[in-house]
């Protein structure tokens, strides 16, 4: 076949500039084209709209019991804590906790009887039991994850087992004494 090459000495700069500009523009085009393809993977407008804040009425929850509900596809526990459970959660020696956090940092001031936490184990995402009456609450009277044996206390903090961190608290606010808005 034809080994056709011009002598490399002739006007290398202008040729290189042209080739460089063409190549750069092509690369930029490919990158720009990739953007919309990747962006289609983001949550769509309907998913985002459905993830708007929700309001929860607390009146039907008896003391010592809890409910489960979904927000943005994630399970959330709301528990009405008894006096004994609150005291138990407050008097723990923080230094002994795997993930030290004071109980006061996990509830709203003046509403210590209400605990609102995400309900999926921080180990590998199973759902710990203990919300409904009769479910095993574990060694610390909170929640117990049956998958790998993580024990959470009455503040939702990890006390024993493989889970690395406490059950996180979702963003929420009290609208009245008996109503909260999550999100």
């Amino acid at each position: 076949m034809a080994e056709a090459k011009s002598s490399p000495a002739s006007e290398p700069t202008r040729r290189d500039m042209l080739f460089l500009a063409t190549g750069a523009m092509g690369a930029a085009g490919v990158v720009a084209l990739a953007v919309p393809f990747v962006r289609t993977l983001a949550p769509n407008a309907q998913t985002i709209a459905a993830g708007a804040p929700i309001e929860v009425d607390l009146t039907p929850i008896p003391e010592g019991q809890g409910i489960k509900l979904f927000w943005r596809g994630k399970l959330i526990f709301v528990r009405s804590r008894t006096k004994a459970e609150i005291e138990e959660a407050q008097k723990v020696n923080l230094a002994s906790l795997p993930d030290p956090q004071a109980d006061s940092a996990r509830v709203k001031p003046g509403k210590e009887n209400w605990l609102v936490i995400y309900g999926s184990c921080t180990h590998l995402g199973c759902i710990p039991g203990g919300s409904a009456a009769g479910e095993v609450r574990g060694d610390y009277n909170g929640w117990f994850c049956p998958c790998h044996g993580s024990h959470y206390d009455t503040s939702g903090r990890i006390r024993k087992g493989p889970a690395p961190t406490n059950l996180p608290v979702p963003p929420y606010a009290f609208l009245s004494d008996t109503k909260i808005r999550i999100g």
Binding site: T40, A42, N44, A45, Q46
Partner: peptide, 13 residues
């Protein structure tokens, strides 16, 4: 129509 309306760049796809 959900693709056309709600998915980011869905109309483009």
């Amino acid at each position: 129509e959900g693709i056309m309306r709600d998915v980011e760049y869905g109309w483009l796809m």
